[in-house]
């Protein structure tokens, strides 16, 4: 789905109980379905409709996105760190594309 690897930023380390900010950016056209091509035919919608974030397999943030979200969707959200673990983020698009990325979090 994505032409390039998504960029996810989270702190290098955190303390248990700390609330950390996570930023996630992915390359995607986010075609609205409202536009027409040069021959006047409608261009089918192709957007990332769902983004999820799990920490150690527990869902803590989910975004259902519509065509009103800009191309190359960027999201910033938060996690209250329960302890050492792994962040898993997933993007799903209309073409059935799925991008999954995992990031370990160092907890002091």
């Amino acid at each position: 789905m994505a032409a390039s690897k998504p960029r996810v930023r989270l702190p290098e380390q955190a303390q248990a109980g700390e609330i950390i900010e996570i930023k996630a950016l992915i390359t995607h056209v986010m075609e609205t379905g409202n536009r027409k091509d040069s021959e006047g035919k409608p261009i089918p919608r192709n957007i990332i409709h769902t983004f999820t974030a799990h920490y150690d397999d527990v869902l803590f943030f989910k975004a259902e996105l519509g065509s009103g979200i800009s191309a190359n969707p960027y999201l910033s959200f938060f996690l209250k760190v329960p302890g050492p673990g792994e962040l898993r983020v997933t993007w799903l698009d209309d073409d059935g594309g799925e991008t999954i990325e995992r990031y370990p979090l160092n907890v002091l």
Partner: peptide
């Protein structure tokens, strides 16, 4: 435009994009 879901594990009900 979007619907966001949070849990207590989110820590903060805040989002930007």
């Amino acid at each position: 435009v979007a619907t966001f879901h949070f849990t207590p594990l989110s820590g903060k009900a805040a989002v930007s994009g």
